[in-house]
C-alpha cells in the first residue's frame, strides 16, 4: 500500500502499511530504497532472489532489509522493485529487481537497520511496520 517518513533527530524513521504481511515487508523495502536513492529512478536490469529467516517478524524484517545493504556494498546492487514476497512462518523468500550502482550517482549512506522503535503488527486495516535506519 504505502509508507511514510517520520521525524527522528539523528536517523531516518519510516512506517509502512500493507494489506498483508508480505505487502508490509515489500513496502518497507521500498522505503529503504527511497532513503538510499533519494528519488533517483533505478532500472530493473538484474533479478535476484533473497532469502532470510528470523525469530520473530521484527528480526525477520531487519534481516530482510539488511540484505539490501549487503547487496549494495558487496555486489554493487541497488534495489528498484520487490516483485514477489513469500512468507512462511518466520522464513521469507523474495524476488527483487534492480541495477548496478555504477550507473547512478548515489550518496545516501544507510549504515544499518536498527531495532529502535521497531514493530511489525496486525491492525484493523491490515499490517503495519515501523523501522529506524541508522544513517
Amino acid at each position: 500500500m504505502t509508507y511514510e517518513f517520520l521525524e527522528h533527530t539523528a536517523d531516518i524513521k519510516f512506517r509502512a502499511k500493507g494489506k498483508s504481511i508480505e505487502e508490509v515487508f515489500k513496502e518497507s523495502a521500498m522505503a529503504l530504497k527511497e532513503t538510499m536513492t533519494k528519488g533517483t529512478e533505478i532500472k530493473k536490469i538484474e533479478e535476484k532472489d533473497v532469502g532470510v529467516e528470523g525469530k520473530d517478524y521484527e528480526s525477520m524484517l531487519r534481516n530482510f532489509l539488511e540484505e539490501f545493504l549487503f547487496l549494495f556494498d558487496a555486489e554493487d546492487f541497488i534495489l528498484s522493485d520487490v516483485t514477489e514476497v513469500m512468507i512462511d512462518g518466520f522464513r521469507l523468500v523474495a524476488t527483487v529487481k534492480g541495477d548496478i550502482i555504477d550507473n547512478y550517482k548515489l550518496t545516501n549512506d544507510v549504515k544499518a537497520i536498527t531495532y529502535n522503535e521497531m514493530y511489525v503488527k496486525e491492525t484493523e486495516k491490515g499490517w503495519e511496520a515501523q523501522v529506524v535506519l541508522d544513517v
Binding site: 531487519r62 539488511e66 545493504l69 544499518a112 537497520i113 536498527t114 531495532y115 529502535n116
Partner: peptide
C-alpha cells in the same frame, strides 16, 4: 569502518539475541 563495521555490529546483535534472548532488556538495541 564503512560497511564492514556496520555488518559486524548487525551480526553480533543477531548472534547475542539468538543466544540470550531479548525479553529482559529495557531496549532491544
Amino acid at each position: 569502518s564503512r560497511g564492514l563495521g556496520h555488518q559486524v555490529a548487525s551480526d553480533f546483535i543477531r548472534e547475542m539475541e539468538n543466544k540470550y534472548g531479548n525479553e529482559n532488556l529495557p531496549d532491544r538495541e
